[in-house]
Amino acid sequence: MLGSPTLCNIEPEKDMAQDMEGDHKYELQDMKKNKKKQLGGIKTMPFILANEICDRFAATGSHANMITYLTKELNMPLVKASNTLTNFAGTASFTPLIGALIADSFAGRFWTILVASVIYELGLVSLTVSALLPQLHPPPCPAQENCKEASATQLWIIYLSLILTSLGIGGIRPCVVTFAADQFDMSKSKVESRSWNFFNWYYFCMGMASLTALTVVVYIQDNVGWGVGLAIPTIVMAFSIIVFLSGSPLYKKVKPGGSPLVRLTQVIVAAMKKRKEVAPHATDCLYKNRELDAAISSNGRLLHSDQFK
Rank of each mutant, 00 (worst) to 15 (best):
K36L: 08
A279L: 13
T128S: 05
N299A: 02
T112M: 08
F179R: 09
A181D: 03
A116D: 02
I172W: 04
P280N: 06
G225V: 07
S105C: 05
N9H: 15
A150K: 09
F94L: 15
S305Y: 03
I42P: 10
I163R: 06
V176E: 01
I235E: 07
A270L: 14
N75G: 01
G99K: 14
T153S: 09
L245C: 06
H63M: 15
K32Y: 08
A282R: 12
L101M: 15
A271V: 10
F88L: 05
P134W: 00
H137L: 00
G61N: 04
A107L: 15
M16D: 12
P174M: 00
E13K: 11
P77Y: 02
C285I: 13
T91S: 11
T265R: 12
D15L: 11
L49P: 08
A231C: 11
R263D: 14
F106S: 04
V191Q: 15
K274G: 14
N34A: 10
T44V: 03
F94S: 13
V262C: 07
T91P: 04
L261R: 15
N9A: 15
L261Y: 12
F88Q: 04
R290Q: 11
S187H: 15
A238N: 07
L2A: 03
L39R: 15
N65R: 12
P174F: 00
S305N: 11
E149H: 10
F199V: 06
L214P: 01
T68G: 09
S297P: 00
N223T: 11
S195Q: 14
V118I: 14
T215V: 13
L74Q: 03
S166R: 08
S161Y: 08
I98N: 11
W226C: 06
I158H: 02
S82F: 01
G168P: 02
G257I: 01
A103V: 04
E13R: 11
I119S: 08
K255D: 11
V177N: 11
L136W: 01
N87H: 08
K80H: 11
P46K: 00
Q144P: 03
E192I: 14
R263E: 10
K35R: 08
S151Y: 06
Y202M: 04
Q154N: 03
Q18H: 08
S187V: 14
L136T: 01
R194C: 12
C147W: 04
L162Y: 04
F106V: 04
I53V: 07
K33R: 13
L302Y: 00
T84Y: 01
L286D: 14
A231H: 09
R194G: 10
K273L: 13
G258P: 03
M208R: 00
A294S: 05
P46V: 00
F244K: 02
A64L: 14
V262E: 12
G168D: 03
L2I: 09
N223Q: 11
V129L: 07
K80I: 12
M31I: 14
D104N: 14
R56W: 04
P96L: 09
D306Q: 07
P260M: 01
L230G: 09
K273W: 11
S189G: 13
S298E: 12
G41K: 08
I67H: 09
P139A: 00
S62D: 03
E291V: 10
P5A: 06
L133W: 02
T128D: 04
L28C: 05
Y219P: 05
G227K: 07
F110A: 07
A271I: 10
V125L: 15
P260L: 00
L211V: 01
I268T: 13
I296T: 09
L167W: 06
M20Q: 14
